[in-house]
């Protein structure tokens, strides 16, 4: 029972990360109908931006201020990179066949991975300790770490912020409008380009934040770190129903917890296979995911 609780808590913390990254996939898919293969690389860039920021600022001792600054900087830079990628790689192709933007997305993704190996070096770097981890307290024999608590807290805050933007602001309303009828929204005075940019920025900020949280918990970063988490997060998005925000969150949490049960109960070699198996099962039996509405294509 203790063990079960421990695995659940670990799983939830990783699941929150999946949820943050999955949101980026699902938002871009919702608005452009495209799988943004480069999203996982924006996640990776978030971690590296924070790494170099900490070096540059000369962060010596762990402190909540350093942690907050690092988190904000990574989010900001990831958002900027997401914005630039959209502007220079995807936007010129908005009118061309979807295959072209997919190919470009793959190209951008590979370019970041291997360009990163040249610029940052291919070997893993150890991520600076922005904040000291400690055992805060015990619940029913399970230890609660500060870092896990931070992951829960920051993810929850980010999700609340996202919810606020999507459902309570003008921009959010415009985003929902563009995603449901991109042909009609310009007639309502909405600038589609601006809204699409915003979508990329928000998704990328979430990915950047997620990257810093993960890097604090597992302080090894390398230019290929995005691909594995990207696959899992994408599966989480499909699991929840691609295009659905709440689906991405629930999908991420469930996948994270599921993976930790596998690890915890001695099947860790199959961890990587889990997300893929889940994907195949969903596609076979419930292709619209948990929360995805049955797609009613406009005919």
């Amino acid at each position: 029972m203790e063990e079960f609780l421990q695995h659940s808590l670990n799983g939830l913390s990783f699941g929150s990360i999946y949820a943050l990254v999955a949101l980026g996939y699902t938002m871009v898919y919702g608005i452009l109908g495209m799988i943004n293969f480069a999203h996982s690389e924006i996640y990776m860039m978030g971690a590296f931006m924070c790494y170099y920021f900490a070096l540059w600022m000369g962060f010596q001792t762990p402190s909540p201020i350093n942690f907050t600054l690092g988190l904000l900087f990574a989010g900001l830079m990831a958002g900027a990179i997401g914005f630039l990628v959209e502007k220079f790689a995807y936007k010129p192709l908005r009118k061309s066949p979807k295959m072209n933007s997919l190919i470009t997305a793959i190209g951008v993704s590979i370019l970041f991975q291997y360009g990163g190996q040249i610029i940052f070096g291919a070997n893993p770097k150890s991520f600076p300790t922005l904040i000291e981890d400690q055992n805060l307290f015990e619940i029913a024999g399970s230890q609660i770490h500060l870092i896990d608590l931070l992951i829960y807290g920051v993810s929850a805050l980010a999700l609340l912020g996202l919810h606020f933007i999507i459902y309570k602001t003008q921009t959010g309303r415009a985003m929902r409008a563009v995603s449901s009828r991109p042909d009609m929204s310009p007639l309502m005075g909405i600038d589609n380009n601006k809204i699409i940019s915003m979508t990329f920025i928000i998704g990328s900020v979430l990915a950047g934040i997620a990257a810093v949280l993960v890097s604090i918990k597992y302080p090894k970063i390398d230019p290929m770190m995005g691909s594995k988490i990207g696959m899992s997060a994408f599966v989480a998005a499909v699991f929840g129903g691609i295009g659905s925000l709440h689906g991405a969150i629930i999908g991420g949490l469930m996948l994270g917890v599921g993976e930790y049960y596998l690890i915890g109960y001695g099947a860790s070699t199959y961890r990587d296979a889990l997300s893929f198996t889940v994907l195949i099962l969903i596609l076979l039996y419930k292709p619209t995911g948990l929360f995805g509405s049955q797609l009613k294509e406009k005919i």
């Binding site: 790689a89 470009t104 590979i110 291997y114 190996q117 040249i118």
Partner: peptide
Amino acid sequence: SVDVRMIVYPIILILMMI
């Protein structure tokens, strides 16, 4: 140690798509 093809290929892909 990096395979230079993996730099050149994606650049070709992106430029070509544009």
